[in-house]
Amino acid sequence: MNTALARLNTIFAFTLSVMAGLTFLCFLSTFFNEHKADVSINTAKVIVKNVPDYSAGREKNDLGFIKLNQVVVWDKIIRRGENSILDYRKANTKYYFWDFGNGLRGNKNVTLSLSWNVIPNAGTLPKIMGTGQHKIEFPAEYSPNRFQ
């Protein structure tokens, strides 16, 4: 009964159940957190440019008759303990819009919003959208200047 193997087995099983319990407590500690926050976004200068792209296919209507587009234009990773109050001025977009059809120029209905995703030690991965959006319009003309 009290062989080394049996004892090892018991210790292993006990360790596993303790860790499972701890993981569950971790999950509980973040599950009820309220992650909502207010966000204010503004845009200064919006330009659309005509850029030849040789990497993509030539089928223009590849993505045609679109109901919804979502594109990430900026992102940031904030680690635990770092300043989580973001105050950016004159920031550029990190990723650009790429229009594979004809939906970008003159689009009057573009909404910018900020969302985030909190990674716990153990638990759910909530996706939160900040309250506060900003609506912009794209200009109807392509920018003539290449480096504007």
Binding site: V71, V73, D75, G81, F97, N107
Partner: peptide, 17 residues
């Protein structure tokens, strides 16, 4: 370990069309 978790954020752009 204790400091590495944080949150990732991004700005979405939604265009209905």
């Amino acid at each position: 370990v204790n400091v590495r978790r944080g949150c990732n954020m991004w700005v979405n752009v939604i265009t209905p069309t």
